[in-house]
Each structure stands twice: as C-alpha cells, then as structure tokens.
Write a protein that binds this DNA or RNA. Structure first.
Lengths: 262, 262
DNA sequence: TTTGTTGGTTGACGTGGGTCAACGGGCGTA
DNA sequence: TACGCCCGTTGACCCACGTCAACCAACAAA
C-alpha cells in the first residue's frame, strides 16, 4: 500500500509512496485543500481550517468515460459529485422517448442535487468527454454540515445557485426566440470558460448540435442555421465544435432588443 | 399585552388573552407545531420535539395584499417565507420588459430560496390573492439547522424539490406542444389542490390567462384556445377561472403520446 | 488507402402558434 | 343600476421554426 501524506493549503502537496502495484488515480483520495478548483467548487469562501476538514468529507474520485452515465434517473441517491475534470450533461426523459437536456456542467460544478428530495435521482447524468468526479457521500455531508460552519452555508448557496440558473433557462425557453437563445447560450459558455481561466472568446463545445438544441428547446437544424447566421453576420466564427466569439457585444444586443419576440 | 400560551402538538391550542387593544394577526407569532399545513411545509417529517423547536424559528406572519410584492428582484435577502394562506407567482424580468413567470406557489410552499446564492433576491414574488406568509429569518434557520437534526435534511429536501420542479418546467417548455403544456399544468394544479384536501377535479385558478401563458411559454390567446379545445373535446369544463377536469386520464394521454411534437 | 458512421449544413416546404383586431361578459366602484 | 376596465374568447392572417431530405466533412475502423 502506498503511504500518502497530504498537507494543507499553503504548503505543497507531498505524496510519498512505496507502491508494489501501480497507483490508479481512481483509488486516490481527493483533497479539496489542494485542488485548484477551490474557487469554483463547493469549498468556495471557506477558511483554511474548514478546508482541511473538507478533505475528510470528499471520498474517492471516480472516472466516467465519454457517453457513460454518472447516474441514471431512478438510481438510489447516495452522493453528490463535484466535477474535477471533464464535463457532463443532465437530461430527463419522457415515456414517449422525448429528451430534455436540463443542463451542461463543467469543472467545479456540483451534480446530483436533484436526488436529495426523493432519495433517488430524477435525471440522467452523462459524461460529454472522459471525465472525473469527486464523490461526496451525502450522509457525511449532512453530518459535517452540522459541525463545519461554512460548509452548510456554501452548500445552500450551491443549491440556490442551481435554482437561479434554472430560472434563467426558463426565461430562455419561455420567452426568447431561437437566435436569442443561442446567443445567450454562447455568452454563458464564454463566461464559464473565462471563470476557469480559458479564453472568453474561443473555445471548443463538448456537446452536439442536437444536445444544444434539446437544451434550448430547438431542433438541431435550427441550431445549425443560427450558427451559420451568426457567422454570416460576423458575430462569431464556427467550425464544427470550435467557436470564436468575434462580437460578444453584438450577441448581447441580440438578446436585449427583441426583434418582435414572443 | 396579551398572554399567549401555546402547547405543542397533541394538545389543543390554548390562547389566553387579556388584551386592552385588539389583537392583529400580523403580530401573532406562528406556531408550526399547531399549523395544519405541517404535512406540506418545511416541518414535514420532523418529530414533535423538533417541531416545538421550530416554533422558535418562525417569526411573525406577514400579510400581503393581492397584486403586492412579497419581495422584488434585487431586494437584500434576509428571510425565506412559508405560505400560510393564499397564493403567489414568481417572475423574472428582462431589461426589455419581457416577463417570465417561473412558478405559482400555494399554501405550505416555500418562497425566497433563490436569494441565498447572492444574498439578494433574483426574482419578484407577487400575491395572486390576499395572502399571508410565515417569515423565517435565514440566519436563524442556518443556526438552528446546526442544532435540530431533522431541520437541515428537510430544508435540503425543500430546495432539492424546487430543482426537480424546475427540471419539469424545462421539459414542458423545451419539448412539449401548447396543448400538452396546458394539460400538464392542469394536472399539476389538480395534484396540488388534492394534496391540500381540495377536490382533484374542480378548482378555481388564481392566475390570469396571461400569467398561465407566461409560465407555459405561450401567448394568452393560445392558452385560451387550448382551454376551449379541451372543452370541445370533453376533457374539461371551463368558465373563466373555474375549471373542472372531466377526463384526467384523457389529459394524461395527451401528454404521453406526442402528436408529432418538437 | 477505403469504407462506414456519426455529426453538421443547407434547401424546400408545411404548420403550430404568434399577431392583430373585434367583441363581450364579469366584476368592482360609484 | 350604470359605468368602465380588465379579462377572456374568437377569427383571420402570417411567420418562425419544425419537418423532410439530400449531401458533405470528420473521424474511426478495417
């Protein structure tokens, strides 16, 4: 067995190992105190002391291959997940097969909150690329929330943020036109890439046109046409999944002044 | 000052008073342990002992007249609210004036959860009729969640339920046709009225066609036409805000088999 | 290299629901 | 009891987006 010694924030991570078998990252315990996603994730705003307590909470990491499910609707709810690497989509399915993508998640974001209410997951979570998550056992989270001051507040904020995000999507679906929806989507992606230290104006989408369409309540052809239209108008440059925002302000304007919207 | 003596669940409520001034309900402290909405509201599933602790948490009640705001987008977040009587809508506004109704709330449901994330409300909450809410100071809730076992779990479930509900609305807005949306809306209302001890098949809507339309991502004319269509087809009987579900199974069928939906 | 498969683009056409407009009934106010 | 306003209904028309179909590019497997 390897000997692992973690030290908290401020000092460097030191991992000493005397391993007779190769170490798989799978079995490695995650350490929030050492994670560079701290600013984006559950631990945001917590003190160093609290962060070290968090290290106890976060269990093993789990890898999820592209197209595989992290969980499925109906699975018993046991843990929530923090995305350490990669990205996911969540969707709900109707009996007749219709799919609605309810969100796309990136590093540092939390998955599985929907499961708390009924103690079973109510949507499917699928990796859009080979990804890795930190597993946070829910009963431990409940327990530790009683003890660690900042954890409870942060967790509430994460849930509340999800509710606010959902309201934004409702706005999008309920009262915007196709091109407005796509513009809002692109700006949102840009903003989230920026928060992760990537370029605000150039990125690779991880999802297909069909998935974007499902999320935005549009058919994939409409999404494709809107992309082309934006390119013609010099707002963006697209090539397959690679997108460059040439005129973010123009995209914003598109959303604000409805051109005779519903 | 009136002398008030409350006893916990199981015994009857006793209120002794020697009042020189008329008692206004406004000033009265709410007692969860005495409230008949316990099964629907935050305290659901908590023990009697825990319920009595909750009585400390829930502050004064507040009356909100029809069309008045309980809170507005931008207001500093200080409390969440449990609806004791009446009903509300929540909506978000775009700069250009477009409105999206994000939900309708009934007795026992919790308002204001959106405010936790940014410490300011992000939507408007408007009473659809003269209503009354219990004010639950958020800092006190945080505090008491550390102490009362069941409260934290229940609160998390309430938030999670809101997220699940929002996903349902996304499904509705993103992949259902006008008549399916209205059918889903009516069945949802029926189910919630039932949970409150009212008839599953006959009720009065509190919101206008325009508000329903905004919620469902439709124009009021479309809502009106769908109502008329359902009536022609013998599914419901409508007269203004009074609705009777004549064939709930038929409404369900409408949702499941899409008639060439998007 | 070829071939198959999946994802994306584009065109032609159809339609669900938005728009505009007229009208009528319920309800609150005087 | 009458007035006025909001709310709801209905019809005629139109357009944004869905549908159907052809085609092409990227990428993986052979």
């Amino acid at each position: 067995m390897p000997t692992l010694a973690f030290f908290c924030r401020g000092s460097r991570i030191i991992v000493q190992m005397r391993a007779s078998v190769p170490i798989t990252v799978d079995g490695l315990k995650s350490a929030c105190s050492q994670c560079n996603l701290v600013e984006l994730c559950l631990p945001f705003g917590m003190s160093n002391a609290e962060l070290c307590r968090l290290d106890e909470l976060v269990g093993a990491r789990r890898k999820v291959k592209r197209q595989n499910n992290l969980y499925r609707a109906g699975d018993p709810f046991e843990a929530i997940y923090a995305i350490r690497a990669g990205s996911f989509k969540t969707d709900v399915l109707l009996e007749d097969g219709r799919e609605q993508v309810t969100g796309f998640q990136m590093t540092g974001e939390i998955l599985g909150l929907d499961g708390i209410s009924t103690e079973a997951h109510t949507c499917n979570s699928v990796a859009l690329e080979d990804s890795e998550v930190c597993v946070i056992a829910y009963d431990k989270l409940e327990q530790m929330s009683h003890e660690v001051e900042g954890l409870q507040l942060q967790f509430h904020k994460v849930m509340s943020r999800e509710i606010v995000r959902d309201h934004g999507v409702m706005m999008l679906l309920g009262s915007m036109r196709a091109e407005e929806r796509l513009a809002a989507f692109l700006l949102n992606m840009s903003q989230r890439f920026t928060a992760r230290g990537f370029s605000p104006s150039e990125f690779n989408l991880r999802m297909t046109r069909e998935e974007i369409g499902s999320y935005l309540g549009l058919k994939l052809e409409t999404v494709s046409r809107a992309f082309s239209r934006f390119q013609e108008d010099g707002l963006i440059s697209v090539q397959q999944k690679h997108v460059q925002l040439l005129d973010p302000a123009g995209l914003k304007r598109l959303i604000q002044h409805q051109h005779g919207a519903r």
